[in-house]
């Protein structure tokens, strides 16, 4: 019963964040860059729910508009990592011994490197920006998906129903597309929903370091960083973006775990 309430609350939060990302104008009137020098550094009030920043911009409006770029980096990186990881995993599992060795050693090399340092290295080479943040995060998260897909594929390839499909006269390609891949995918999706949270935090961290979307773009990590200097006089500038990141990651994790239980319940 308790779990239900948690999952319900998390789902509602996710729905609101999604709405903010897709149609921010439905939630707030102003625009994120609308500055009002006279109203700079005002605390939370009825006019400015989350207060205003040093330029007098409304923090709430900026958080709502910030949902899209903040989510984009995390989701984009996860989607890219899943796609690349799946391709590598299938290649390793089905492409023969030599290919398996090469792909898996590559994967281990990447996994052995400290994640954030690797991302920093990539961005040092490519330069800052949302696309590069996505590339950097995808690079170091893809290996775990590749491992999972490889292991799943190897198990499922030997499953009774794959032999049954072979005996039935189905071709290899069809068997992989119709039976192996979809069954390997279920646990992958669960991992991905949980990992989206990690990717979001990573993206926010890179933005915080000034490597993501450049100002004045309203990105949560960048806003958090911008509020750092004013923390002693105007805590709301940094706190609210931080809360937004935390709530998003928490909600995604709760919903992800719930999905995981559903999937496991179905197969056991």
């Amino acid at each position: 019963m308790k779990a239900r309430v948690g999952v319900g609350a998390a789902s509602v939060t996710l729905a609101l964040i999604t709405l903010a990302a897709l149609a921010p104008a439905l939630l707030v009137d102003g625009t994120p860059d609308q500055a009002d020098a006279l109203a700079a550094l005002e605390g939370p009030s009825a006019d400015h729910l989350f207060g205003t920043d040093a330029n007098g911009r409304d923090v709430f409006t900026r958080i709502v508009y910030g949902a899209a770029p903040s989510l984009l980096a995390g989701l984009g990186a996860t989607a890219l990592a899943v796609a690349v990881g799946t391709a590598l995993g299938l290649l390793a599992a089905l492409g023969g011994r030599a290919l398996d060795e090469i792909v898996m050693r590559l994967v281990e090399v990447v996994l052995a490197l400290p994640t954030l340092l690797l991302a920093l290295l990539v961005i040092t080479i490519t330069g800052p920006g949302t696309v590069n943040v996505i590339l950097a995060i995808a690079l170091y998260t893809a290996p775990s998906y590749a491992r999972l897909v490889r292991a799943q594929t190897m198990v499922i390839r030997r499953a009774g129903f794959v032999e049954a499909a072979t005996s039935l006269g189905l071709g290899q390609g069809r068997i992989i597309l119709r039976h192996v891949l979809p069954n390997a995918f279920a646990p992958l999706l669960v991992l991905a929903t949980i990992e989206v949270g990690t990717a979001l935090v990573a993206a926010a961290s890179l933005s915080y370091l000034g490597l993501g979307p450049q100002p004045p773009a309203p990105e949560w990590g960048a806003m958090l960083s911008g509020g750092r200097d004013y923390f002693s006089v105007a805590w709301w500038i940094a706190i609210f973006p931080g809360v937004a990141i935390t709530l998003t990651v928490l909600s995604i994790t709760v919903v992800g775990r719930h999905l995981q239980r559903l999937v496991e319940g179905r197969t056991s």
Binding site: F161, E163, A164, S167, L168, L170, P182, N183
Partner: peptide, 21 residues
Amino acid sequence: RELRRHIQVIYQDPLSSFDPR
């Protein structure tokens, strides 16, 4: 593949011979 049609199989554990989805 064409020849496989003529010879089919049933197993001890039918459940594992079906795609769970």
